[in-house]
Nucleic acid binder design. Sequence first.
DNA 1: TCTGGGGTCCTAGGACCC
DNA 2: TCTGGGGTCCTAGGACCC
Length: 426
Amino acid sequence: MLSTQYNKVFALVDCNHFYVSCERVFNPKLLNKPVVVLSNNDGCTVSLSTEAKNIGLTRAVPIFEHKDLVKKYNVQTLSSNYTLYGDMSHRVMMTLKQFSPNIEIYSIDEAFLSFHGFKVNLTDYAKTIRDTVFQWTGIPVSIGIAPTKTLAKLANHLAKKDPDNSGVYNLLEERNIDTVLSHVEVRNLWGVGSRYSKMLNREGIYTAYDLKSVDDQWIRKKMTVMGLRTAYELRGLSCIDLEHAPSPRKSIVCSRSFGKSIESLRDLREAVSNFVTRASEKLRSQDSLVSSVSVFLETNSFKVNEPQYNNSITTPLPKPTSYTPEIISHTLKGLDRIYKSGYRYKKAGVLFLGIIPNKDIQLDFFIEHNPRKNALMKAVDCINEQFGSDTIRCLSSGFKHKWKMNQNNVSQRYTTRWTEILTVKI
DNA sequence: TCTGGGGTCCTAGGACCC
DNA sequence: TCTGGGGTCCTAGGACCC
Protein backbone atom coordinates (compact mmCIF):
# COMPACT_ATOMS: atom_id res chain seq x y z
CA MET A 1 0.00 0.00 0.00
CA LEU A 2 1.44 3.35 -0.96
CA SER A 3 1.60 6.30 1.37
CA THR A 4 0.17 8.56 -1.35
CA GLN A 5 -3.25 7.00 -0.73
CA TYR A 6 -3.57 8.93 2.51
CA ASN A 7 -3.78 12.65 3.18
CA LYS A 8 -1.34 12.40 6.02
CA VAL A 9 1.46 10.20 7.25
CA PHE A 10 2.64 10.23 10.86
CA ALA A 11 5.56 8.53 12.56
CA LEU A 12 5.60 8.10 16.32
CA VAL A 13 9.10 7.80 17.74
CA ASP A 14 9.12 6.45 21.28
CA CYS A 15 12.22 5.84 23.39
CA ASN A 16 12.47 2.31 24.77
CA HIS A 17 12.23 2.24 28.59
CA PHE A 18 13.56 5.77 28.45
CA TYR A 19 14.69 6.41 32.02
CA VAL A 20 16.49 3.08 32.23
CA SER A 21 18.13 3.78 28.85
CA CYS A 22 19.36 7.20 30.07
CA GLU A 23 20.97 5.58 33.10
CA ARG A 24 22.59 2.91 30.93
CA VAL A 25 24.25 5.44 28.63
CA PHE A 26 26.43 6.59 31.54
CA ASN A 27 26.63 3.36 33.48
CA PRO A 28 27.30 0.39 31.18
CA LYS A 29 27.25 -1.97 34.18
CA LEU A 30 23.46 -1.72 33.95
CA LEU A 31 23.40 -3.24 30.46
CA ASN A 32 21.77 -6.67 30.08
CA LYS A 33 20.61 -6.61 33.69
CA PRO A 34 17.22 -6.13 35.30
CA VAL A 35 17.00 -2.40 36.06
CA VAL A 36 14.12 -0.34 37.44
CA VAL A 37 13.79 3.43 37.81
CA LEU A 38 11.46 4.50 40.62
CA SER A 39 9.05 7.39 40.95
CA ASN A 40 9.69 10.32 43.28
CA ASN A 41 10.21 9.27 46.87
CA ASP A 42 11.44 5.89 45.56
CA GLY A 43 7.80 4.77 45.61
CA CYS A 44 6.59 3.03 42.47
CA THR A 45 8.21 1.45 39.44
CA VAL A 46 8.03 3.76 36.43
CA SER A 47 10.59 2.50 33.93
CA LEU A 48 11.69 -1.12 33.56
CA SER A 49 14.35 -2.76 31.44
CA THR A 50 13.28 -5.75 29.32
CA GLU A 51 15.18 -8.04 31.69
CA ALA A 52 13.18 -6.64 34.63
CA LYS A 53 9.89 -7.21 32.80
CA ASN A 54 10.91 -10.74 31.87
CA ILE A 55 11.38 -11.78 35.49
CA GLY A 56 7.90 -10.53 36.33
CA LEU A 57 8.25 -6.93 37.49
CA THR A 58 5.49 -4.60 36.38
CA ARG A 59 5.04 -0.86 35.94
CA ALA A 60 3.32 1.52 38.37
CA VAL A 61 3.59 -0.84 41.32
CA PRO A 62 5.05 0.03 44.75
CA ILE A 63 8.56 -1.40 44.71
CA PHE A 64 8.18 -3.02 48.14
CA GLU A 65 5.61 -5.38 46.63
CA HIS A 66 8.41 -6.67 44.40
CA LYS A 67 11.01 -6.98 47.14
CA ASP A 68 11.36 -10.75 46.79
CA LEU A 69 12.04 -10.51 43.06
CA VAL A 70 14.42 -7.60 43.60
CA LYS A 71 16.43 -9.65 46.05
CA LYS A 72 16.33 -12.92 44.12
CA TYR A 73 17.49 -11.42 40.82
CA ASN A 74 19.62 -8.59 42.21
CA VAL A 75 17.50 -6.00 40.42
CA GLN A 76 19.14 -2.56 40.24
CA THR A 77 16.67 0.00 41.61
CA LEU A 78 17.44 3.65 40.85
CA SER A 79 15.87 6.88 42.09
CA SER A 80 14.63 9.11 39.29
CA ASN A 81 16.99 11.79 38.01
CA TYR A 82 14.84 14.20 36.02
CA THR A 83 17.70 16.59 35.35
CA LEU A 84 19.45 13.85 33.43
CA TYR A 85 16.33 12.61 31.63
CA GLY A 86 15.29 16.11 30.61
CA ASP A 87 18.66 16.80 29.05
CA MET A 88 18.82 13.43 27.28
CA SER A 89 15.31 14.04 25.96
CA HIS A 90 16.47 17.32 24.49
CA ARG A 91 19.32 15.54 22.69
CA VAL A 92 16.96 12.94 21.21
CA MET A 93 14.49 15.60 20.03
CA MET A 94 17.25 17.69 18.42
CA THR A 95 18.34 14.59 16.53
CA LEU A 96 14.80 13.86 15.35
CA LYS A 97 14.46 17.41 14.03
CA GLN A 98 17.08 16.51 11.42
CA PHE A 99 14.62 14.11 9.84
CA SER A 100 11.41 16.09 9.46
CA PRO A 101 10.56 19.80 9.46
CA ASN A 102 7.26 18.99 11.16
CA ILE A 103 7.66 17.51 14.61
CA GLU A 104 5.58 17.55 17.76
CA ILE A 105 7.36 16.78 21.00
CA TYR A 106 4.57 14.89 22.70
CA SER A 107 6.21 13.89 25.97
CA ILE A 108 9.63 13.53 27.52
CA ASP A 109 10.24 10.35 25.50
CA GLU A 110 7.94 10.59 22.47
CA ALA A 111 7.61 12.69 19.34
CA PHE A 112 5.28 12.64 16.36
CA LEU A 113 6.91 13.39 13.00
CA SER A 114 5.09 14.16 9.79
CA PHE A 115 6.31 12.06 6.86
CA HIS A 116 3.71 13.52 4.56
CA GLY A 117 4.88 13.85 0.97
CA PHE A 118 8.18 12.07 1.56
CA LYS A 119 9.23 10.26 -1.62
CA VAL A 120 11.39 7.62 0.06
CA ASN A 121 10.86 4.16 1.43
CA LEU A 122 9.50 5.16 4.83
CA THR A 123 10.41 1.91 6.56
CA ASP A 124 14.05 2.32 5.55
CA TYR A 125 13.93 5.98 6.49
CA ALA A 126 12.64 5.10 9.96
CA LYS A 127 15.43 2.56 10.37
CA THR A 128 17.94 5.29 9.54
CA ILE A 129 16.36 7.51 12.19
CA ARG A 130 16.55 4.74 14.71
CA ASP A 131 20.24 4.06 13.99
CA THR A 132 21.12 7.75 14.06
CA VAL A 133 19.39 8.44 17.37
CA PHE A 134 21.17 5.49 18.91
CA GLN A 135 24.54 6.54 17.53
CA TRP A 136 24.23 10.17 18.59
CA THR A 137 22.58 9.75 21.99
CA GLY A 138 22.85 6.09 23.02
CA ILE A 139 19.07 5.85 23.38
CA PRO A 140 17.19 3.02 21.60
CA VAL A 141 13.86 4.02 20.02
CA SER A 142 10.91 2.31 18.31
CA ILE A 143 9.01 3.85 15.43
CA GLY A 144 5.44 3.33 14.20
CA ILE A 145 4.20 4.72 10.88
CA ALA A 146 0.53 5.20 9.94
CA PRO A 147 -2.00 7.61 8.40
CA THR A 148 -3.32 8.88 11.77
CA LYS A 149 -1.76 9.59 15.14
CA THR A 150 -3.84 6.91 16.87
CA LEU A 151 -2.75 4.31 14.33
CA ALA A 152 0.87 5.51 14.59
CA LYS A 153 0.66 4.88 18.34
CA LEU A 154 -0.73 1.45 17.63
CA ALA A 155 2.01 0.76 15.07
CA ASN A 156 4.59 1.82 17.63
CA HIS A 157 3.10 -0.62 20.11
CA LEU A 158 3.52 -3.38 17.53
CA ALA A 159 7.07 -2.27 16.73
CA LYS A 160 7.98 -2.70 20.38
CA LYS A 161 6.10 -5.93 20.90
CA ASP A 162 7.55 -7.96 18.06
CA PRO A 163 11.35 -8.20 17.98
CA ASP A 164 11.15 -9.29 14.32
CA ASN A 165 10.10 -5.76 13.38
CA SER A 166 13.53 -4.50 14.51
CA GLY A 167 11.95 -1.49 16.13
CA VAL A 168 10.04 -0.19 13.10
CA TYR A 169 6.49 -1.04 12.07
CA ASN A 170 4.92 0.57 9.02
CA LEU A 171 1.16 0.11 8.91
CA LEU A 172 1.05 1.60 5.41
CA GLU A 173 2.70 -1.54 4.09
CA GLU A 174 0.00 -3.75 5.56
CA ARG A 175 -2.35 -5.32 3.01
CA ASN A 176 -5.17 -5.85 5.44
CA ILE A 177 -5.15 -3.36 8.29
CA ASP A 178 -8.35 -4.80 9.77
CA THR A 179 -6.62 -8.11 10.39
CA VAL A 180 -3.89 -6.28 12.27
CA LEU A 181 -6.46 -4.30 14.27
CA SER A 182 -8.34 -7.44 15.22
CA HIS A 183 -5.26 -8.59 17.13
CA VAL A 184 -4.88 -5.40 19.19
CA GLU A 185 -6.81 -5.21 22.46
CA VAL A 186 -8.78 -2.02 23.11
CA ARG A 187 -6.90 -1.42 26.35
CA ASN A 188 -3.73 -0.86 24.33
CA LEU A 189 -5.25 1.99 22.33
CA TRP A 190 -4.33 5.65 22.77
CA GLY A 191 -7.35 7.27 24.40
CA VAL A 192 -8.78 4.11 25.94
CA GLY A 193 -7.87 3.77 29.61
CA SER A 194 -8.74 1.14 32.16
CA ARG A 195 -12.28 2.46 32.81
CA TYR A 196 -13.27 2.57 29.19
CA SER A 197 -11.65 -0.77 28.34
CA LYS A 198 -13.61 -2.49 31.12
CA MET A 199 -16.82 -0.88 29.91
CA LEU A 200 -16.08 -1.84 26.30
CA ASN A 201 -15.30 -5.43 27.25
CA ARG A 202 -18.61 -5.64 29.11
CA GLU A 203 -20.30 -4.50 25.89
CA GLY A 204 -18.52 -7.19 23.88
CA ILE A 205 -15.92 -4.90 22.32
CA TYR A 206 -12.49 -6.39 22.69
CA THR A 207 -10.25 -5.30 19.84
CA ALA A 208 -9.35 -2.17 17.89
CA TYR A 209 -11.26 -3.67 14.99
CA ASP A 210 -14.38 -4.08 17.16
CA LEU A 211 -14.17 -0.45 18.26
CA LYS A 212 -13.78 0.99 14.79
CA SER A 213 -16.86 -0.97 13.66
CA VAL A 214 -19.19 0.33 16.37
CA ASP A 215 -22.03 2.76 15.65
CA ASP A 216 -21.02 6.45 15.89
CA GLN A 217 -23.95 7.52 18.06
CA TRP A 218 -23.24 4.78 20.54
CA ILE A 219 -19.58 5.71 20.94
CA ARG A 220 -20.45 9.40 21.23
CA LYS A 221 -22.87 8.63 24.03
CA LYS A 222 -20.61 6.25 25.93
CA MET A 223 -17.21 7.85 25.39
CA THR A 224 -17.93 11.49 24.42
CA VAL A 225 -16.50 13.08 21.30
CA MET A 226 -13.04 11.93 22.38
CA GLY A 227 -14.03 8.29 21.90
CA LEU A 228 -15.63 9.07 18.56
CA ARG A 229 -12.43 10.71 17.43
CA THR A 230 -10.49 7.58 18.38
CA ALA A 231 -12.88 5.49 16.25
CA TYR A 232 -12.46 7.79 13.24
CA GLU A 233 -8.72 7.67 13.58
CA LEU A 234 -8.81 3.86 13.68
CA ARG A 235 -10.71 4.02 10.37
CA GLY A 236 -7.80 5.95 8.88
CA LEU A 237 -9.43 9.37 9.02
CA SER A 238 -7.00 11.79 10.64
CA CYS A 239 -8.70 14.00 13.25
CA ILE A 240 -5.76 14.94 15.45
CA ASP A 241 -3.10 17.04 13.78
CA LEU A 242 0.46 17.81 14.80
CA GLU A 243 0.81 20.59 17.32
CA HIS A 244 3.97 22.42 16.47
CA ALA A 245 4.29 25.03 19.19
CA PRO A 246 3.67 23.87 22.73
CA SER A 247 0.79 25.95 24.07
CA PRO A 248 1.31 27.68 27.41
CA ARG A 249 0.07 25.80 30.46
CA LYS A 250 -3.41 26.60 31.74
CA SER A 251 -2.60 25.29 35.18
CA ILE A 252 0.65 24.60 37.00
CA VAL A 253 0.96 22.07 39.80
CA CYS A 254 3.75 21.39 42.23
CA SER A 255 3.15 18.72 44.82
CA ARG A 256 5.19 16.11 46.64
CA SER A 257 4.77 13.19 48.96
CA PHE A 258 7.03 13.68 51.94
CA GLY A 259 9.86 11.29 52.78
CA LYS A 260 8.27 10.95 56.21
CA SER A 261 5.00 12.30 57.52
CA ILE A 262 5.10 15.74 59.13
CA GLU A 263 2.81 17.24 61.73
CA SER A 264 3.82 20.83 62.43
CA LEU A 265 2.44 23.82 60.59
CA ARG A 266 5.96 25.20 60.52
CA ASP A 267 7.25 22.29 58.40
CA LEU A 268 4.20 22.41 56.14
CA ARG A 269 4.68 26.14 55.54
CA GLU A 270 8.28 25.48 54.64
CA ALA A 271 7.33 22.75 52.16
CA VAL A 272 4.54 24.81 50.60
CA SER A 273 6.91 27.78 50.18
CA ASN A 274 9.18 25.53 48.19
CA PHE A 275 6.31 24.28 46.01
CA VAL A 276 5.20 27.85 45.28
CA THR A 277 8.80 28.73 44.40
CA ARG A 278 9.00 25.87 41.85
CA ALA A 279 5.59 26.65 40.37
CA SER A 280 6.42 30.37 40.10
CA GLU A 281 9.59 29.53 38.20
CA LYS A 282 7.54 27.52 35.71
CA LEU A 283 5.06 30.37 35.51
CA ARG A 284 7.73 32.94 34.67
CA SER A 285 9.43 30.61 32.21
CA GLN A 286 6.29 30.73 30.08
CA ASP A 287 5.99 34.50 30.70
CA SER A 288 2.62 34.31 32.46
CA LEU A 289 0.86 35.61 35.56
CA VAL A 290 -1.31 33.70 38.01
CA SER A 291 -4.63 35.01 39.32
CA SER A 292 -5.54 32.44 41.97
CA VAL A 293 -3.74 29.72 43.85
CA SER A 294 -4.93 26.53 45.55
CA VAL A 295 -3.10 24.78 48.32
CA PHE A 296 -3.93 21.27 49.49
CA LEU A 297 -2.75 18.86 52.15
CA GLU A 298 -3.34 15.16 52.69
CA THR A 299 -2.71 12.54 55.33
CA ASN A 300 -1.58 9.06 54.32
CA SER A 301 -4.71 7.32 52.99
CA PHE A 302 -2.92 3.95 52.99
CA LYS A 303 -2.70 4.04 56.77
CA VAL A 304 -6.30 3.19 57.51
CA ASN A 305 -5.79 3.19 61.25
CA GLU A 306 -4.55 6.76 61.38
CA PRO A 307 -6.97 9.70 61.50
CA GLN A 308 -7.48 11.11 58.01
CA TYR A 309 -7.85 14.71 56.92
CA ASN A 310 -7.67 16.14 53.39
CA ASN A 311 -8.47 19.69 52.51
CA SER A 312 -7.77 22.41 50.00
CA ILE A 313 -8.47 26.09 49.65
CA THR A 314 -8.37 28.40 46.67
CA THR A 315 -7.25 31.98 47.26
CA PRO A 316 -7.78 34.64 44.60
CA LEU A 317 -4.80 36.99 44.35
CA PRO A 318 -5.51 40.72 44.52
CA LYS A 319 -4.04 41.03 41.02
CA PRO A 320 -2.36 38.62 38.62
CA THR A 321 1.33 38.31 39.43
CA SER A 322 4.44 36.18 39.01
CA TYR A 323 6.28 37.63 42.01
CA THR A 324 7.24 34.68 44.20
CA PRO A 325 7.17 36.39 47.64
CA GLU A 326 3.67 37.72 47.04
CA ILE A 327 2.33 34.35 45.87
CA ILE A 328 3.96 32.61 48.85
CA SER A 329 2.39 35.05 51.27
CA HIS A 330 -1.15 34.49 49.97
CA THR A 331 -0.72 30.73 49.70
CA LEU A 332 0.52 30.45 53.27
CA LYS A 333 -2.50 32.38 54.52
CA GLY A 334 -4.66 29.76 52.85
CA LEU A 335 -2.60 26.96 54.36
CA ASP A 336 -2.98 28.45 57.85
CA ARG A 337 -6.75 28.38 57.41
CA ILE A 338 -7.02 24.70 56.47
CA TYR A 339 -4.26 23.33 58.71
CA LYS A 340 -5.43 21.23 61.65
CA SER A 341 -3.06 19.96 64.29
CA GLY A 342 -3.03 16.35 65.39
CA TYR A 343 -2.69 14.79 61.95
CA ARG A 344 0.29 13.21 60.22
CA TYR A 345 0.53 14.80 56.79
CA LYS A 346 2.02 12.80 53.93
CA LYS A 347 1.54 15.08 50.97
CA ALA A 348 0.92 18.71 50.11
CA GLY A 349 0.94 20.81 47.00
CA VAL A 350 -0.03 23.98 45.22
CA LEU A 351 -2.03 24.55 42.07
CA PHE A 352 -1.87 27.77 40.06
CA LEU A 353 -5.13 28.62 38.30
CA GLY A 354 -6.29 31.42 36.06
CA ILE A 355 -2.98 31.67 34.28
CA ILE A 356 -2.78 34.50 31.78
CA PRO A 357 -0.02 35.52 29.40
CA ASN A 358 1.93 38.53 30.60
CA LYS A 359 1.45 40.31 27.28
CA ASP A 360 -2.34 40.19 27.59
CA ILE A 361 -2.29 42.22 30.77
CA GLN A 362 -0.01 45.13 30.12
CA LEU A 363 -2.67 47.49 28.88
CA ASP A 364 -4.83 47.01 31.94
CA PHE A 365 -4.87 50.23 33.93
CA PHE A 366 -5.46 48.50 37.25
CA ILE A 367 -2.55 46.12 37.12
CA GLU A 368 0.36 47.34 39.13
CA HIS A 369 3.36 47.57 36.87
CA ASN A 370 6.45 47.19 38.98
CA PRO A 371 9.57 46.85 36.86
CA ARG A 372 11.76 46.35 39.93
CA LYS A 373 9.91 43.20 40.99
CA ASN A 374 10.16 41.82 37.47
CA ALA A 375 13.85 42.64 37.27
CA LEU A 376 14.43 41.03 40.66
CA MET A 377 12.71 37.78 39.64
CA LYS A 378 14.60 37.75 36.37
CA ALA A 379 17.92 38.12 38.18
CA VAL A 380 17.02 35.41 40.71
CA ASP A 381 15.97 33.00 37.95
CA CYS A 382 19.17 33.72 36.08
CA ILE A 383 21.42 33.10 39.10
CA ASN A 384 19.58 29.91 40.06
CA GLU A 385 19.80 28.67 36.50
CA GLN A 386 23.54 29.16 36.45
CA PHE A 387 24.56 28.23 39.99
CA GLY A 388 21.92 25.67 40.84
CA SER A 389 18.36 25.72 42.04
CA ASP A 390 17.75 27.59 45.32
CA THR A 391 21.06 29.46 45.31
CA ILE A 392 18.83 32.46 46.04
CA ARG A 393 15.46 31.84 47.66
CA CYS A 394 12.92 33.08 50.14
CA LEU A 395 13.61 32.61 53.82
CA SER A 396 10.22 30.93 54.25
CA SER A 397 11.54 28.03 52.16
CA GLY A 398 13.66 27.07 55.15
CA PHE A 399 16.82 25.03 55.51
CA LYS A 400 16.03 21.82 57.34
CA HIS A 401 13.61 20.30 54.84
CA LYS A 402 12.56 17.49 57.15
CA TRP A 403 9.90 16.64 54.59
CA LYS A 404 12.39 16.02 51.79
CA MET A 405 11.60 13.06 49.60
CA ASN A 406 13.57 9.82 49.71
CA GLN A 407 16.12 9.40 46.97
CA ASN A 408 18.33 6.58 48.04
CA ASN A 409 20.04 5.72 44.79
CA VAL A 410 20.17 8.68 42.46
CA SER A 411 22.74 8.87 39.67
CA GLN A 412 24.83 11.93 38.86
CA ARG A 413 23.70 14.80 36.66
CA TYR A 414 26.30 13.75 34.12
CA THR A 415 25.31 16.17 31.38
CA THR A 416 24.36 19.38 33.18
CA ARG A 417 26.85 19.88 36.06
CA TRP A 418 30.58 20.22 35.53
CA THR A 419 31.21 18.77 38.97
CA GLU A 420 29.25 15.62 38.18
CA ILE A 421 30.64 14.88 34.75
CA LEU A 422 31.69 11.32 34.01
CA THR A 423 35.39 10.62 34.45
CA VAL A 424 37.07 7.87 32.46
CA LYS A 425 40.14 6.14 33.81
CA ILE A 426 42.44 4.61 31.22
C1' DT B 1 8.87 0.49 56.98
C1' DC B 2 7.90 1.50 51.95
C1' DT B 3 2.20 3.36 47.71
C1' DG B 4 4.54 9.46 42.03
C1' DG B 5 3.75 13.86 39.72
C1' DG B 6 1.98 16.91 36.20
C1' DG B 7 -0.95 17.79 32.75
C1' DT B 8 -5.43 17.91 29.22
C1' DC B 9 -10.27 17.72 27.76
C1' DC B 10 -15.37 16.99 28.21
C1' DT B 11 -19.79 17.19 30.53
C1' DA B 12 -23.37 18.23 33.78
C1' DG B 13 -25.25 21.27 36.83
C1' DG B 14 -25.66 25.51 39.35
C1' DA B 15 -25.36 30.58 39.56
C1' DC B 16 -26.33 34.53 37.42
C1' DC B 17 -27.99 37.82 34.08
C1' DC B 18 -31.30 39.99 31.13
C1' DT C 1 -54.49 27.80 41.01
C1' DC C 2 -49.99 27.23 39.61
C1' DT C 3 -45.45 27.76 35.39
C1' DG C 4 -40.27 32.11 31.80
C1' DG C 5 -36.51 31.06 29.20
C1' DG C 6 -32.26 31.38 27.00
C1' DG C 7 -27.45 32.36 27.24
C1' DT C 8 -22.94 32.42 29.59
C1' DC C 9 -19.70 31.42 32.96
C1' DC C 10 -17.74 28.64 36.47
C1' DT C 11 -16.74 24.46 38.93
C1' DA C 12 -16.47 19.69 40.17
C1' DG C 13 -15.94 15.28 38.69
C1' DG C 14 -14.52 11.86 35.59
C1' DA C 15 -12.08 10.25 31.87
C1' DC C 16 -7.56 10.21 29.62
C1' DC C 17 -2.25 10.89 28.69
C1' DC C 18 2.88 10.41 29.94
